[in-house]
Design a protein around this nucleic acid. Structure first.
Lengths: 245, 245
DNA sequence: CCGGATCCGTAACGATACTG
DNA sequence: CAGTATCGTTACGGATCCGG
């Protein structure tokens, strides 16, 4: 009786306390989605095919109560209700993107649905890989029109922030291409110059030079350090198969 | 039929793929524990009072299959079986510590059990807060004897790594104190000099200067940037209570 | 004693139907 | 459109048992 199912870890450890808020299923992916900008309930629902409206509602309430997320109303013409990150939630950008960088190495098995690939998620991963900040005084945006969806990168404090949707201010550069070409650019399978030459990419505004800079700054490579790990004991079983290289 | 309960998110997104491996309950805390060094099954079980041996076994098997964890046998005299992180798992140190830094700001409510505070976890958080690497050539360890447990900080590639247990090599500095004093030192409530003067801390090996350096390098403060967040829409409800400051 | 595996009652989840 | 209510299924927590 009076059993508290606990749900929380209850440990005096900052990681455990973070996970008390973020550790349940879907929660971190909801935050990921909101890192790309304010989103409507139905957009979040669409981003997660199998969550169920009640779960999503439950998660959003939890995040709101923890001060990570808040309800807001989009300005002027739209005036629709959305969820957005609070400053506390925005501070999750760095940890989450770094967890994403870790996942770049992982093998893509058959359980991953290739159809879930999205340009804004690629862009989010790209911004995680920016090694050095640019001039903090610069305040520009770059817009990509990929398929029928737009996304933009906002330069803030010397770092690119990825957002879904068109740029709120006039972008210094605007290009259009399809998703596959964008992925090839991100993975450096092709260069911006090649994409331009092959007609896979069109510059709607700005210069090729500005385009080169974007894909020069954003590398999308994990660059794993070897890490000798001196504490390692005598290994009995040398790790089966998967990703370790 | 042939219903696959899915368990995985199945999304083509590096964060989602990371969480496919790490997202289940307890998994990230198991990794946290192994960041402190190789651990026996029973030690992990003791670190998580309510996990149940079957869950722990299940999580460890999952992590092993993903190449994050491997079984090993401790060298020479001990010769006991342990679990340890692979290089892939070791690469989770940075993302996890950053997620922990985020959690530092969170309010400690009544669901947190103060008795779960542990010196090695504090030390792990401390190493997360090291702002700048030291001279990469230095290779030293610092040992703390806190209560009846020992932990050590290993300087590797200019960064301190926290580990449970006594230092494997002779430490350049070794001090003894109780848990409360260690926490006070970590939070900068007191300085090493004060702790020494009050008799709360004893230097068993090394110099006070070396002690000062450790707590000078490791700050344990989140140092949150304001982040103006220009995209913020007109807020309808200004966030109820909790952490946002 | 240690490292699990098995079993069972409860809480969380996924899918769908329903409502303001 | 933004959720809430309901229900069958899955995962979890706790205890017990078993082989080395």
């Amino acid at each position: 009786m009076e059993r508290v199912p606990s749900k929380t870890y209850g440990q005096m450890c900052p990681l455990a306390r973070s996970l008390d808020i973020l550790g349940e299923r879907w929660t971190l992916l909801v935050v990921r989605e909101l890192l790309l900008g304010p989103k409507r309930f139905k957009h979040l629902l669409a981003a997660f095919p199998s969550i169920g409206a009640n779960r999503l509602s439950e998660r959003l309430r939890g995040l709101e109560q923890a001060g990570v997320v808040r309800r807001a109303t989009l300005p002027a013409p739209a005036a629709v209700p959305v969820y957005e990150l609070t400053p506390l939630g925005e501070r999750l950008r760095d940890p989450l993107l770094r967890l994403g960088l870790w996942g770049l190495d992982l093998p893509v098995d058959e359980r991953i649905d290739p159809a879930t690939a999205r340009a804004d998620l690629i862009a989010l991963g790209l911004t995680a890989a920016q090694p050095e900040p640019l001039d903090p005084a610069r305040c520009e945006t770059v817009q990509f029109d990929i398929g029928d969806e737009a996304l933009h990168l906002q330069l803030q404090d010397g770092r690119f922030l990825a957002r879904s949707g068109p740029s709120p201010s006039a972008p210094v550069l605007r290009v259009a291409c399809d998703l596959d070409s964008f992925i090839a650019l991100a993975l450096r399978v092709i260069t911006p110059a090649q994409a331009l030459g092959d007609g896979k990419l069109a510059i709607l505004a700005g210069t090729p030079m500005a385009l080169d800079e974007v894909f020069e700054v954003l590398v999308y490579a994990p660059a794993a350090e070897p890490e000798p790990l001196t504490t390692s004991a005598s290994v009995r079983q040398p790790t089966v198969g998967s990703a370790d290289r």
